[in-house]
Structure formats: structure tokens, C-alpha cells
């Protein structure tokens, strides 16, 4: 799939989707991801169990993440190559947003 199609289909990512993807740079299961995101955002982002399950099942179906193991009925996921491409596009988009914001509103205190 070419870049433009991927951008159109997936971007912008929701905050939940974004944090799920970056958390899966290391293998983790659903609840671990919830805890991890809460920890790195100092409690600002709490992903609900339903939102988490919805994101994981959709991302797996679309090939953005893969199951790498199953332990005690928990699925452990990891980001796929396709997921990484999407994350790269999203990071570029976010960087553009940030640089525009800073250059236009640099005097904002």
C-alpha cells in the first residue's frame, strides 16, 4: 500500500491508538499497555478496557500489530512493519503540527 493510502486510512491516530502502537515497540499484553501508558503520561491518559480491546482487535485485523505469544489466556502483541510505517507517518505529521504551532505562536506564554 502506498504512503498516501495509508495516511488517508489511518491518520490522524487517536491518542489511544498512538500510545498502543508506541507501547508495542516492546512485546506487551493489553493490561500491561494500559499500565504503561498511564505511567509514562503521569496518569493523564487512562485507556479503558473496552477502548483497549477494540484497538487491539482492529489493529491486529489490519496487520498493524502481531500476536507474538499467548500466556494464561493473555495475548502478547508487538508492532508490525506496517505499524511502524504508520507510526513514522504519524510522527512526521505531529512534528509538522508542533513546528507550525511553535513558529506561529512562539510568543505564547
Amino acid at each position: 500500500m502506498d504512503t498516501e493510502k495509508l495516511q488517508k486510512k489511518y491518520l490522524p491516530l487517536t491518542e489511544a491508538a498512538y500510545y498502543v502502537l508506541i507501547s508495542l515497540n516492546k512485546p506487551r499484553h493489553g493490561y500491561r499497555i494500559m499500565l504503561y501508558v498511564k505511567e509514562i503520561t503521569n496518569g493523564r491518559i487512562n485507556i479503558g478496557a473496552g477502548t483497549m480491546y477494540g484497538n487491539l482487535s482492529r489493529m491486529e485485523k489490519e496487520g498493524l500489530i502481531n500476536t507474538v505469544a499467548e500466556e494464561d489466556r493473555k495475548k502478547i502483541y508487538e508492532i508490525s512493519e506496517k505499524g511502524k510505517i504508520i507510526l513514522k507517518l504519524e510522527l512526521a505529521r505531529l512534528e509538522e503540527l508542533l513546528s507550525h504551532g511553535k513558529s506561529e505562536m512562539g510568543d505564547l506564554k
Binding site: H29, M34, G50, R73
Partner: peptide, 19 residues
């Protein structure tokens, strides 16, 4: 909370239980 999830597998219940 009333949920209407997609395909339910074992890990669906696990995520909720752990939370």
C-alpha cells in the same frame, strides 16, 4: 457499562478482569 465488542476471545475477559 454495557459492551458490544467485536469477536470475543479469551483475552477480552482477561483485559477486563485485570482492570
Amino acid at each position: 457499562c454495557f459492551d458490544y465488542p467485536a469477536y470475543v476471545k479469551d483475552n477480552y475477559f482477561e483485559i477486563f478482569k485485570e482492570d
